[in-house]
């Protein structure tokens, strides 16, 4: 059975919470909240998201440090020119450049991590409503097609101002 999606748009936070309660009661626990500004965690009764973002900078830092170390050590061994009476492999300058490499690696990987963990870029925007960035709250459910009607009822009972679903779109097209 194919899955379909449905999006309920709510005017304010309180009605969105009512809608979320209805969805939970109807057995849809795996819905997404879409909002135009961040709300304190757990405001809609959602579980705190699990992510592994902290791993990214560590990996990046290690990569960056290795590259920095290899680059500084390698180039100085390859072109050994003594300056200022300092040893060819001088640790403080190597540490400085490796440090910059470490930090650059950490930042690059963190950025990649944020984008990846935010599940971006999405191939398509999908069901969406531009009013969400205006203060409206969206509740987005993906479920087997025959359950969509139930979800729609739950959303409407929660005083959703608008409900869109991929089913309607398909019907309109067909």
């Amino acid at each position: 059975m194919a899955n379909a999606s449905i999006l309920g748009v709510f005017k304010d936070v309180d009605s969105a919470v009512a809608g979320a309660d209805n969805l939970n009661a109807a057995g849809f626990n795996d819905f997404e909240v879409l909002s135009g500004s961040p709300y304190p965690e757990g405001a809609f009764g959602e579980k705190p998201p699990r992510h592994k973002l902290y791993v990214f900078p560590l990996i990046g830092a290690m990569c960056g440090f290795t590259v920095g170390l290899l680059l500084t050590a390698g180039t100085q061994i390859a072109y050994p020119m003594v300056t200022g009476g300092k040893p060819i492999l001088s640790l403080p300058p190597m540490a400085i450049i490796s440090y910059e490499g470490t930090m650059l690696g950490a930042v690059l990987f963190t950025i990649l991590g944020v984008i990846f963990e935010s599940r971006l870029p999405r191939p398509r925007l999908g069901l969406y409503d531009t009013r969400i960035t205006e203060g409206y709250i969206g509740l987005f459910v993906t479920a087997p097609e025959e359950q969509i009607a139930r979800a729609e009822k739950a959303l409407r009972d929660g005083r959703a101002v608008d409900v869109k679903s991929t089913l309607q779109r398909a019907r309109a097209r067909g």
């Binding site: 919470v17 709300y39 304190p40 757990g42 809609f44 009764g45």
Partner: peptide, 13 residues
């Protein structure tokens, strides 16, 4: 006086 706990939607802050 200056700190309190209030319910906020489904959570407490």
């Amino acid at each position: 006086v200056l700190q309190t706990v209030r319910p906020f939607l489904k959570t407490e802050l």
